[in-house]
Write a protein that binds this DNA or RNA. Structure first.
Length: 468
RNA sequence: GGUGAGGUGGCAGAGUGGUUAUGCGUGGGCCUGCAAAGCCUAUCUAAAGGGGUUCGAUUCCCUUCCUCACCUCCA
């Protein structure tokens, strides 16, 4: 497949017959995750699912930054240790993202568990005279790295003239960034240069190299990490290995609210937990994939609602196939129909292979749903059709990470009894009684669709924001 | 100020040098005991403004305007 690479500003071919190693910059665990984090993580989770469905062997590493000034500040305010705060947020991370049906990464390395690796890396840079020890810490010599700024397309001279660079007299150059910061405050670690803690960027260099090797296929994260985080990672890593670092730099766009980036500091965040409560995991996944990954998505109730409607259509489709009539009669147009759906699946794959165009892929996907539901409304979904179509649909659901609510055998049994009773009542035109049963069934989370000759039942996901 | 990405119909959102995706919404109809879902049909006749290249531009080039992001922690 082809993926747009931020570094070369061009589409790069990804060979899926070889191992695909992905490093995703995860979250800093100073607080719970918001929907902006979820967008990036869902994009990469879906990419990973697509690659695996295409036969690739994927190794997926996602870090937790658990040493950070905001965590320390919280620790000082609350009296709890930084470690406890980090662990709490890591726990809620897993609660949130398990609910979002995000597959587990191969490893979730934590910064605090890789201090030695970072120190080794820094030592190497100091030995090469690419880093130096100053009053407040160990810094990287930006001027000694050729093409510093190549990822973010920034020039050192432009950065220097920018008024926003913090001036620290002890540094050789204001742009030099910290590899190690001296500190006696907890948490801190011993190092050859003095007690302290690592700079932010060094963890990702150390951990990506440790788990994936000196060169790997994809390094991902949000667009806001391009500078300085990923820029600095490149400088450190390539200075250390003397090799090109990641082959493809892939960046996800921001979630905005009223066109403004969602972030804790602006104070316009929607937490994952909160949005899950209102909309559930499937609608959120569809929402996050409804725009191209590289572009921003504006968070609005309307857009969520739109995806809720689509989700309901999908649930209907799934149950129509599952409860296909037992008739073995083979529709003469069966082959044409299957060919049509197979073509759609191909278009779906092609869209994803072309820089992971999820909005286009979803268009194809819902095109398929529409066709199946159309056939279903005419009661033309027979077992032979369902048997062939269901695997295609399930494969797409797996790639998209969507989960239709399933029913238990017990539920099915009691539903059948109630349905039979309702059918009798309807036939004898005792509609009030029949409607009572429908209500009773809907209390079980089961919804009915009366076709001409049969009643479709389906278990719908309970979604609080659903008006019904 | 610098750098980058954009500005597509009521909204969302792709592709494309010429046959003007798709979805949502909205109107009407069909189906239904009712409902829901679905179907049919219609609707909006879209490309920020101005130049240019071209037989022809939403798509290429220039320019103006606007928006967002990054330049500080950030997914």
């Amino acid at each position: 497949m082809k993926i747009q690479d931020t570094l070369s500003d061009s589409e790069k071919e990804l060979d899926i017959t070889k191992k695909v190693r992905i490093y995703l910059c995860g979250v800093t665990v100073y607080d719970v995750s918001h929907i902006g984090h979820a967008r990036t993580i869902i994009v990469f989770d879906t990419l990973r699912r697509f690659l695996e469905a295409s036969g690739a062997n994927v190794e997926f590493i996602q870090n937790f930054t658990d040493v950070d000034d905001k965590i320390i500040k919280k620790a000082n305010e609350s009296g709890e240790s930084a470690e406890i705060i980090s662990n709490k947020n890591i726990q809620s991370y897993f609660e949130d993202f398990n609910r979002l049906n995000v597959k587990a990464a191969t490893e979730y390395p934590k910064a605090t568990e890789h201090i030695e690796d970072m120190i080794n890396l820094i030592q190497n840079l100091v030995d090469k005279d690419l880093a130096y020890v100053a009053k407040n810490g160990v810094y990287f010599h930006v001027s000694k790295f050729p093409n510093y700024g190549k990822l973010s397309k920034k020039k050192i001279s432009d950065l220097e003239s920018g008024a926003r660079v913090e001036i620290d007299e002890s540094k050789d150059n204001p742009l030099d960034f910290a590899l190690w910061k001296f500190s006696n405050e907890l948490p801190n670690w011993n190092s050859p240069w003095g007690n302290g803690k690592p700079g932010w960027h060094i963890e990702c260099s150390a951990m990506s190299i440790k788990y994936l090797g000196e060169e790997f296929e994809i390094h991902g994260g949000g667009r806001d990490l391009i500078f300085p985080h990923h820029e600095n990672e490149i400088a450190q890593s390539e200075s250390f290995t003397q090799k090109p670092f990641a082959k493809i730099w892939m960046h996800a766009g921001m979630i905005t609210i009223n066109g403004e980036k969602m972030s804790k500091s602006v104070g316009n965040i929607k937490t994952v937990n909160n949005v899950l409560e209102n909309w559930g995991p499937n609608v959120i996944r569809l929402f996050c994939l409804s725009g191209h990954y590289s572009k921003p998505i504006d968070y609005t109730e309307n857009l969520l609602k739109e995806n809720l409607v689509k989700w309901r259509q999908l649930e209907t489709c799934y149950y129509e196939l599952r409860l296909a009539s037992d008739s073995d009669s083979v529709n003469s147009e069966l082959n044409d129909f299957i060919a049509q759906l197979t073509k759609i699946k191909q278009n779906f794959d092609t869209a994803l292979e072309n820089d992971f165009n999820t909005p286009l892929a979803l268009t194809e996907f819902f095109n398929m749903i529409k066709i199946i539901n159309g056939l279903a409304s005419e009661e033309n979904i027979t077992k032979p059709i369902a048997t062939q179509v269901m695997p295609i649909l399930e494969k797409m659901l797996e790639i998209l990470g969507l989960n239709v609510i399933k029913t238990t055998d017990d539920e099915i049994e009691s539903i059948f009894k109630l349905l039979e009773k309702r059918e009798e009542l309807r036939k004898s035109k005792q509609f009030d009684e029949a409607d009572n049963i429908r209500t009773q069934i809907s209390d079980m989370g089961i919804y009915l669709i009366d076709h001409k000759n049969k009643t479709l039942w389906m278990k719908k996901e309970k979604i609080n924001s659903d008006a019904n």
